[in-house]
Design a protein around this nucleic acid. Structure first.
Lengths: 134, 134
DNA sequence: TTGACGTCACTACAAATGTAGTGTAATAAT
DNA sequence: ATTATTACACTACATTTGTAGTGACGTCAA
């Protein structure tokens, strides 16, 4: 069996640590590893090398880009928050809801505690979507 | 730092392979590893030992239970589909939407192509939820 | 020009994951 | 009983993930 080509990753699957880091990058890009480490120090307390190693791997995976300036590595995101979110959602859909969107929405509405406010907001969202597409 | 107690897992985080297997178990439980392997043969082509090993690990993790009858291992799920889904959803929420439900709903409604039918269904779901909770 | 300090590139390593082989023991068919 | 078939328990192993240490090197202030 031919090994999968790997030239294109585009799968955009991020691990937990990668998500945490990516969220910071999206806010601060372009940014150095140290910046990210500091931003996450309180909440996670990771060593500089932990953050740096992960970011290096993310470059390899095509999740981040790196631009070296003098002695500094500036990282930027290679995928948008929306793309990452969509990708993650798709994965969840596939794994947990057999790929069907409506059952997931149903689950969210029924099982997850949707408070009255959230229901209102959702109604508004639907109105908008409906207006746009209908 | 005290190593995490591990006595209770309850984190219910499943890997990709585990989800695939779990979906079969939910449909056929109690069932033997061979049954699961056969059910997934066409779609995934995994070896018996692959399925078996994974299911053994799932028992260790508390995702499945095992009951031996004669020479047979009958596996059953230890968590419900709903619990697993909720857990997966929560994880997605946390990672990709900073834990906030509404933005995720917004994303689903706006970014994901919600067709007219789906919008109708969603409306109905909301009506029901609203009636029940309000 | 000499430190102090930040940053880099490398290396390391245990645990989790994906995937499977194998010898052996139980069962079923003859 | 003998054989063919199953299923079992174990072991194995490459990757990926989580997390970090280290020595070298660039930079900036004294």
């Amino acid at each position: 069996m031919a090994k999968k080509s790997k030239s294109e990753q585009s799968s955009t699957t991020m691990t937990d640590v990668e998500w945490v880091i990516m969220n910071v990058v999206w806010e601060q890009e372009p940014c150095a590893a140290g910046t990210v480490q500091e931003a996450l120090d309180e909440s996670h307390g990771w060593a500089y090398s932990t953050v740096k190693t992960t970011m290096d791997r993310m470059v390899t995976k095509g999740l981040l880009t790196r631009k070296a300036i003098r002695n500094l590595n500036l990282f930027s995101s290679a995928i948008s928050p929306d793309k990452a979110r969509r990708s993650e959602l798709k994965r969840l859909l596939r794994r947990a809801f057999n790929g069907a969107l409506t059952p997931m929405l149903q689950f969210l509405v029924e099982e997850e505690e949707l408070g009255p406010e959230e229901i209102q907001q959702l109604r508004a969202l639907i109105r908008q979507a409906d207006r746009k597409s209908g």
